[in-house]
Simulated scan of single mutants.
Amino acid sequence: MTLFAGLAAFSITPADASGHVDTAALARLLERICAAGAESIGLLGSTGGYAFLSRRERQRAVEAAIECVDGRIPVIVGVGALRTDEAQALARDARKAGASGLLLAPMSYTPLTDEEVLQHISAVAEAGQLPLCIYNNPSTTRFTFTDDLIVRLARLPNIAAVKMPLPAQGDVAGELARMRSRIPEGFSIGYSGDWGAADALLAGCDAWYSVVAGLMPAEAVALTRAARAGDVAEARRLDRAFQPLWNLFKEFGSFRVMYAMADLLGLVGVDPPRPILPLGKTDMARVKDALTRIAL
């Protein structure tokens, strides 16, 4: 099985107000993911707040994660950075620490062209010398990968997968068929956007890059396994239980909601990095209600 397959659970990265990572708290979260049976851990993705952390703190997080999992589960490390040389250094750090793969979004203050993104990702993939997943996250990066660009990247060494947003028109099956007709065999196509996970998995995508699995891995594993087994009724039943939480993800952004969840579940009590503010009492109550429905 390819590295980029099944459920990739993306954890938050607990840190104090100065950006110092609480490696013990991170290890506790990752241990839950290992125990639940996810296929991989996504570390320092958008959910992991990579953009808010220094290179040294990102190194500490990766080293702690690799020590915690001790070879039980692959760790995919986000290495996004504004500068190409910085992203290359982060890729080398991840490889040295023992990461299994890399995840790269084209961060930039200045809008990027296709050629700039191609050269950026190619350079980081060469530096990291690990299987790399392209992170197509236009809501954050303001850059949307075209099919043509993904096809060009998929033919380059070390580039093995793409993490896609949900298609605007909801036709995951059509998008998968279109892209698979053009990319090399074995190149993985996965999706983020947890509220569309059931549809994407049932349509036959290779991977679910899951936010919620970072804190509720057992429930996310159950949904993944039902969908991948073709058990439509069970996948839909589990997805319906998640709907109030999916609605909160859409309303507030999953990053804010995950910090609220971590507190309410008693897993770790830290605020998101500033300038992101924690949810207020009324909205926290809504998150609690959504968690209760999932538990039921």
Score class of each variant (00 low, 15 high):
T141V: 09
L265S: 11
L82I: 09
P275Q: 07
T84I: 08
A105D: 03
I150W: 05
M284V: 05
P275R: 05
C34D: 14
R256S: 10
A25K: 01
D283K: 13
Y109Q: 05
G37Q: 10
D283S: 08
Q169P: 00
E175P: 00
T47N: 14
V151L: 09
G37P: 03
D231W: 02
A125D: 02
M284S: 07
L112H: 02
A61V: 12
I294G: 07
T140M: 12
I66E: 00
S54T: 15
N247S: 15
Y191C: 07
S100A: 15
D147Q: 11
S210H: 04
A24K: 11
A17M: 04
L264N: 01
T23A: 13
D231V: 11
R95E: 00
I294Y: 09
L82S: 12
M258F: 13
D289V: 04
E67G: 10
A127Y: 05
G269Y: 00
Q129E: 15
L29N: 12
A233S: 10
V270T: 10
E185Y: 00
D22F: 09
A226E: 05
G193H: 11
P184C: 10
L90D: 01
R237Q: 08
A198F: 02
R56E: 15
V151I: 09
S139E: 08
Y259I: 06
S100F: 01
R95A: 04
G186N: 10
G98V: 01
L104E: 07
R60I: 00
P131L: 13
